[in-house]
Nucleic acid binder design. Structure first.
Lengths: 108, 108
DNA sequence: CAAATTTTTCGTTTAAAGTGAAAAATGCTT
DNA sequence: AAGCATTTTTCACTTTAAACGAAAAATTTG
């Protein structure tokens, strides 16, 4: 029923693979840079999540971009980012933007 | 002979207008984010330079982008950036990139 | 329920961005 | 050309985002 692509990985494995501390992945999640599936409380990262994170790390470490810039580019649906950004993440951000918009509206 | 657009402004005035220290403008110049004309040693910023800097400050302060990200986007000729980036700066980067490339080649 | 695992919190470290102060370089005026 | 004023540069410090370590809190599982 499930394709190879549906495989998912726990945070420690992903962190190790990327060469970062798992705290860093929690940190990214606060900014909704990546939003892994949850089963109960536990996080599971899809292959698409991992590819996306690899790309982000490359932008950050090889190019010197910062987190916020990447978020700005996503919000602008910038081509540089969107080429590599998995659809799941795009959707996360769409939801994020909608929530922001709603909050603003409620404040009026 | 000279149009209104050819007016240019000394660094202190530009810094004050942007609300930054003039050292910050020297700092930006190291990265070729802005490259003012020189008469003798003295720097003169065009209106286009100033508009560009205003845009950069907005990206940095309102959006939270960092210098390096903006430079990455210029190098990538990113549309978001290029709309506002003066031709001088683009050319500087072209030259810079060519120099880098040549250096690399010479090291082989 | 106890043990093990995951998440969260708190505080610290590191590096880029920005700035202040003063030294060095340059230009201008007489 | 000498002396004064202005601009540029250097050096060292401050601030903040990003990343991390350790331990407390929460949760799942055996």
């Amino acid at each position: 029923m499930f394709s190879e692509e549906d495989k998912s990985y726990p945070i420690e494995l992903v962190a190790e693979f990327l060469g970062v501390n798992s705290r860093t992945l929690y940190y990214y999640e606060k900014f909704m840079l990546v939003v892994p599936q949850r089963r109960g409380r536990k996080r599971y990262y899809s292959k698409s999540d991992i590819k996306w994170l690899e790309y982000v790390r490359e932008l950050m470490y090889e190019q010197g971009m910062n987190l916020r810039s990447i978020i700005v580019l996503i919000k602008r649906r910038d081509r540089v980012i969107m080429d590599k950004c998995p659809e799941d993440v795009v959707n996360c951000f769409k939801n994020y933007l909608m929530r922001l918009k709603k909050e603003e509206e409620d404040n009026n």
